[in-house]
Nucleic acid binder design. Structure first.
Length: 166
DNA sequence: GCCAACGTTGGC
DNA sequence: GCCAACGTTGGC
C-alpha cells in the first residue's frame, strides 16, 4: 500500500503520510483517498488480521518502509463525499458509494528502506503487481513475496549485491 | 461500444 | 520537470 512520505500540497491540503506518521497515530488509520477501482477491489479483498507492506512512493528512495496490519475491513470512504477533501469525488454518492477504505495499524518499521531498485533485482519478486501495475496505489502481494521482502530487511545492500537472491 | 483525447501516477 | 503507462471520459 503506497503513501507519500514527503509533503505535497493538493487543493491546499498536505497529503503526506509516512510510516512515522502511522507509528505515531493513536487510532487505527483509515486508508482513505484511493480513487482507482482495481486498488479499491484489492482493499475490499483484505481480511481483518492480514498484514500489508507500507510503501513510500514519490520520494527520493521509493520502497518498502515496514509492515502494518488490517484491523478493519473495507468500509465506505466518506472523504469522497466532502468537497473540502482533496480526494472529493462527486461521482460517489451516499446512496451509492464508489470508494471504500480499510483501517490499518502500525506493526513494524524496517531498519532500512527496501528500495524499489533492490526489489527489482530479485527473480522471486519479478511478478509482483507492484511492477506490472505500477500505478496502482494498493496492489496484491503473495505470501511468498511478503516473506521474501521481510527477510531482506536485516541485510545490507552491498551484501545483496554480492550474493544476489536468484 | 469504440477509441481519441485527456488526466493521473510515480519513477527517474 | 519530464514523460511512459494506463485509467477515465465523452463524442459519435
Amino acid at each position: 500500500m503506497k503513501s507519500e512520505p514527503d509533503s505535497r500540497i493538493v487543493d491546499g491540503k498536505d497529503v503526506k503520510f509516512s510510516i512515522t506518521d502511522l507509528e505515531n497515530a493513536k487510532e487505527p488509520e483509515p486508508w482513505t483517498g484511493v480513487r482507482n477501482y482495481a486498488a479499491r477491489n484489492n482493499m475490499q479483498a483484505m481480511k481483518k488480521g492480514e498484514l500489508a507492506l507500507f510503501y513510500h512512493s514519490n520520494t527520493k528512495v521509493p520502497g518498502v518502509a515496514g509492515i502494518m496490519e488490517i484491523v478493519e475491513e473495507a468500509t465506505i470512504d466518506k472523504t469522497a463525499f466532502d468537497p473540502e477533501n482533496p480526494y472529493y469525488d462527486p461521482k460517489s454518492k451516499r446512496e451509492k458509494p464508489a470508494w471504500y477504505c480499510v483501517s490499518v495499524t502500525f506493526r513494524e518499521r524496517f531498519p532500512r528502506i527496501i528500495s524499489l531498485h533492490e526489489l527489482r533485482k530479485h527473480d522471486t519478486l519479478s511478478r509482483m503487481e507492484l511492477f506490472s501495475k505500477a500505478r496502482l496505489s494498493v496492489s496484491r502481494v503473495t505470501a511468498e513475496e511478503f516473506h521474501f521482502i521481510a527477510s531482506l530487511k536485516d541485510m545490507e545492500d552491498e551484501v545483496i549485491d554480492y550474493f544476489p537472491q536468484t
